[in-house]
Amino acid sequence: MSLSISITLNGRPHDIALDDPRVTLLDLLRERLDLTGTKKGCDHGQCGACTVLVDGRRINSCLSLAASLDGAEITTIEGLADGEALHPVQAAFIEHDALQCGYCTPGQIMSAVGLIAEGHAGDDPERVRELMSGNICRCGAYHGIVEAVLEAQKTIAQQDKRRAAA
């Protein structure tokens, strides 16, 4: 049984023929498109390491069947930076030591990008912690993660303001 889907991945169109309907978005990215930045942690939607944006919203790619995503626009960690210029969330994670081993980091960053776009946290660290609770960090870098999310949110707001004024 062959299923075909067309997706936009990190800004570029892809036509993909799936030989097996069981392929999750996570496995499609890692095993078939060689985008290994998105990590497989628990593979059950509990850890958040596989977080990507689908149509601008953060989801767990391990719990999404690729075959159901025809027409979707997908952004992974590989699609965030603008050439050599890091995305503000990436820069803030480095600045605030928001990682130790780094395995959860792509998921944390994609989740933070989604959180900032959703716009429900304000500048309240409690809301950031609550809204980042779908991303587990076994090294326990949570303190830096919350700081990084809050700073990146400010940076992005300033960028948006400058862009609106320009």
Binding site: G45, G48, R57, L63, S64, S111, G114, S133, G134, N135
Partner: peptide, 9 residues
Amino acid sequence: GASAQLRNA
């Protein structure tokens, strides 16, 4: 309920 990622889906 659940996490922000799961609620989005």
